[in-house]
Design a protein around this nucleic acid. Structure first.
Lengths: 332, 332
DNA sequence: CTGTTAGCGCTTTCAT
DNA sequence: ATGAAAGCGCTAACAG
């Protein structure tokens, strides 16, 4: 645990090589034309001294940090983990670093975190911000360049989103086609845009089928929420359940099975996200595969465009894929 | 997507308030004694201009960034996600930001990533580095302050680790006590320290019971690895399986069940980590609960100590907790 | 082709 | 108590 020796500065290298700072700078940046002999000499001494330019100093003078910030509502949420992963990998390829900030689902923290991290970075990606539109719009202006993930189209920033509405509608249609007429929807975080999109899907489904009854029950986003909703679900007498996501579906599935209810014979359950475990529940979960990693990668691409002065697609919608497995069957 | 207005600088505030830079700086840092009237005036104009000190400039002059780096082998690995979460939350409480770097399990990337991110931060946490001891030791010296997670004790840095050896030994003892005499171990990433710790646990168990046979089979760290190992496991005729982690156990469980093998009647399976789903498999998984979030939190605390000049505990070992569920039973 | 100089925005002696 | 000035380490005109 000894102290590391002070890092060599450009001045050290210049002195050691017997040249000026500018020359060292030019050599290190492959800039302009420098005498080959000098280039060689500077390179050598730089290597010898283990010199590398101080990124902070460079950032200050260049006005860019080669770093972006990602603000997520909850690092424990698999969806955000996947999005973060997509961003991180894609950004790394372009030589960018990623600063993370977790708002812990505290909506009042989002603005502060975004603004603060923005100041140390070249841009920010807001993953599924929970704040309302009235707050988001103005914030985006001050944050530019900024990209928003999983929200509706914005004036002030490109948006990359998974089409939850379409996907849940598809799941609802699937149940309806199987003969289910009374189904329940286990809702997630009330204020989240992805929950709103799902509610819209429910409306679509209701409008399309007047023999279809959909009952909304507040639940949550994790396994326990699903388990806790079991009694409420049974009380409705519904034959099908659209769970907010796979975790909720799994919790419900387990709780129902423990009560001796058979899935899908007595009741059908759908998940959402297609997390890796979804295929390993018993029965395996019918769900919708959300390309979260790809969403992250596209968010990076949009931000990168902004950073390089290119135009970014204002709204990119990625369509989740319906995955039919064994947790759904014809209504009893 | 308009451009954000240039941020106000300390010079702007000084001019607007009719004072010198130093005074503004003093006020903003609550430094020294400044005339209350001036403090008020500076505060007001700063607020009016929406001024906040440029973190980059501060970092350059102060020599600290209020940021740390975390290098993980794979952001997709739930264990590292949890560790990262623990670090992130704990660091946020102390007002630190977190830069993440994912080496993608490419061992040769680790050193570069660590060194590069270190230069933009005040310290780094190496989560389960895959490089060997010969590489790690010297690297730590150049990285200081640095904390290592899930490796053996180091000379040059504090280490925070979960005691995988003890935990797997406990699981093995559990199977032995149930009468299992031939069991298989589904190994993870060969070069990882956590795998090595598990192998040591196996040795401990073998040494303690000469009627115990443990067969090692290379698998992996994810669900598919477990599923793919099913045939190999059956071929051994073992009555118990120690899976590398819960994911592997789940994959195996599913694959075995599909083949009509009953768990735990025909064969017992143990997982590792106690991920949230472990209790929701059927049967629920006997496993060992690794306090990964807490490991992360402690790693931050160690680094924070280093950062503030305090002594850090050289080696902190967190003991996973045995969780008995229904995937293990007496040997047939 | 190379060196000198002026900042990037801020903190911190050092004077006054 | 306040301001002037130096400097963190680097890049980019600007001269020569």
């Amino acid at each position: 645990m000894s102290e590391a020796p002070r890092k060599a500065t450009i001045t050290d290298v210049a002195r050691a090589a017997g040249v000026s700072l500018s020359t060292v700078s030019r050599v290190m940046n492959g800039n302009a034309t420098v005498d080959p002999a000098l280039v060689e000499r500077v390179r050598a001494t730089a290597a010898e001294l283990g010199y590398a330019a101080n990124p902070l100093a460079r950032s200050l003078v260049l006005g860019r940090t080669q770093t972006i910030a990602v603000v997520v509502p909850d690092l424990g949420n698999p969806t955000f983990q996947a999005i973060l992963r997509g961003i991180s990998h894609a950004a790394a390829v372009d030589g960018y670093h990623v600063l993370i900030a977790d708002s812990g689902e505290r909506v009042e923290e989002e603005r502060v975190l975004a603004e603060e991290t923005r100041r140390r970075t070249d841009g920010v990606i807001l993953a599924a911000p929970r704040m309302d539109e009235a707050q988001l719009g103005p914030l985006l202006e001050t944050l530019a360049p900024v990209v928003v993930v999983n929200r509706g189209r914005q004036d002030a920033a490109p948006v990359v989103a998974a089409d939850y509405r379409h996907a849940l509608r598809e799941l609802a249609e699937h149940l309806h086609a199987l003969g289910h007429r009374r189904i329940v929807f286990l809702a997630g975080v009330a204020r989240s845009a992805s929950n709103a999109a799902r509610l819209a899907a429910l409306e679509d489904a209701r409008a399309a089928h007047d023999d279809l009854e959909i009952i909304e029950i507040p639940a949550g986003v994790d396994v326990d929420s699903g388990a806790e909703a079991a009694e409420a679900v049974l009380a409705t007498g519904a034959t099908g359940v659209l769970a907010f996501n796979d975790l909720v579906a799994m919790g419900l599935l387990t709780a129902l099975t423990e009560r001796g209810i058979r899935v899908p014979d007595d009741i059908s359950i759908t998940g959402f996200d297609d997390i890796p475990f979804a295929r390993h529940t018993s029965p395996p979960l019918t769900t919708s595969a959300v390309p979260a990693v790809e969403v992250g990668a596209q968010a990076w691409r949009a931000l990168h465009s902004l950073l390089t002065g290119d135009e970014a697609t204002p709204f990119a919608s990625l369509v989740p894929q319906l995955v039919l497995r064994a947790s759904t069957a014809p209504a009893p």
